[in-house]
Design a protein around this nucleic acid. Structure first.
Lengths: 209, 209
DNA sequence: CGCAACATACCAACCGGTCGGTTTGTCTGT
DNA sequence: ACAGACAAACCGACCGGTTGGTATGTTGCG
């Protein structure tokens, strides 16, 4: 199933190069010759596989969704019996993979969204699908945890799931600003604390209407 | 002190253009001729006032700091007597100014940081100073609120202040992805609820070590 | 006058995209 | 087993518009 061919095609190499370069310097500043050099192929190969640069960007976003999807699907936090534990496990897993250089742990589609949301609708759509598709995987566990505690709060499971992604995206920006992983990890700690407080305040009245 | 000249100089116009264009399409994709057109000046004026594009970007970040600094300094939430109320007031103010098109309420320096953190150190420094300089204005109120409730938690005032900025930056990304203001406002609601829960759980033991 | 604030004209490098050609693999008939 | 046909994968020179930056005026104000 996995890595069925030893010889990676030019397309695959160009997509892997996308992850590295876009996360390091953004979509707009990335030149296609630079992509080709990183991938070790020529410009001809690039335009054989992709109609244009945006087409490559869309494919990169989909490639990213596939890779991250597999990563989270195989992550250990799913083993917990309690849905709340799985949710906390997810957050801790997100914290744990904040490792190495900034361009290694930041989010491809979040970075792209910033630059292209107004000028490349197709690409924006692909990025949005990646972010919210991932957020949707959290919803069942959140709903189950809510039901288990009999919570009927002023927020929805989908909204909390989206919020986790907002915190992570924002944490990445701060880490880029400081150049320090710990800046991002601190925000993930706050996110974990928030979720714990949300589900601890089970029978109490909500402070916010 | 403020707006001492009716005739805005080319420099001011170029800086105002920066806010509009960079927020709409990012730093890299913004062309200097486009900046000049938006500002209604010529390229000669641009390179008279700025050594190069990056120099202009740094000035834009500082201009942004000055503008937002004045905005928040004059905001009504400072009138509250209680520091906790001021903190909540700040969050609500941030929610209230999420209005109009996406490029009108998103953050200039957050957008820039994403693209240039690895390639333009001076610009990154200016953006980081803007973000964390703003976060620092929240620290006294957070500390006062902590002291008033006798909180000695596992988190610091500076860390919570930084987290507020992370949530806001992340909320902006999600709003760019969906094209909908409400996506951002939802995360600000979660942020408010988190702060309320933090300060409500005064005498209780922290769930997170 | 003299200097700063602008305008105009221009350039060399760059960059996305094209195009004709070559290599590599696969399918088919014998 | 093998040659021929065909297509997809890939190459790299080339093009034309664009872009950051410069060189050289011109204007206006103290």
């Amino acid at each position: 199933m996995a890595t069925k061919q030893i010889k990676r095609s030019a397309r695959d190499k160009l997509l892997d190069a996308a992850l590295k370069i876009i996360r390091a310097k953004g979509y707009s500043a990335t030149r296609v010759e630079e992509i080709c050099a990183e991938a070790g192929v020529t410009k001809g190969a690039f335009f054989h596989h992709f109609r244009n640069k945006e087409d490559w960007g869309v494919a990169a976003a989909q490639h990213w969704s596939g890779m991250t999807g597999a990563l989270f699907e195989g992550a250990p936090y799913h083993r917990h019996d309690d849905p709340f534990d799985r949710l906390i496990g997810y957050v801790e897993f997100r914290k744990a993979i904040i490792e190495g250089d900034v361009e290694e742990f930041t989010c491809l589609v979040g970075t792209m969204t910033q630059e292209i949301y107004g000028s490349h609708p197709e690409l924006r759509e692909a990025c949005a699908a990646s972010i919210f598709g991932h957020a949707a995987t959290l919803v069942p566990d959140i709903e189950a945890a809510m039901a288990a505690r009999g919570l009927e709060p002023g927020w929805t499971a989908a909204s909390l799931a989206a919020h986790t992604q907002a915190v992570l995206q924002g944490a990445f920006i701060l880490a880029k600003a400081t150049g320090d992983r710990d800046t991002a990890r601190d925000s993930v700690d706050h996110l974990r604390r928030y979720i714990e407080l949300l589900f601890a305040a089970d029978s109490k009245a909500e402070p916010t209407g």
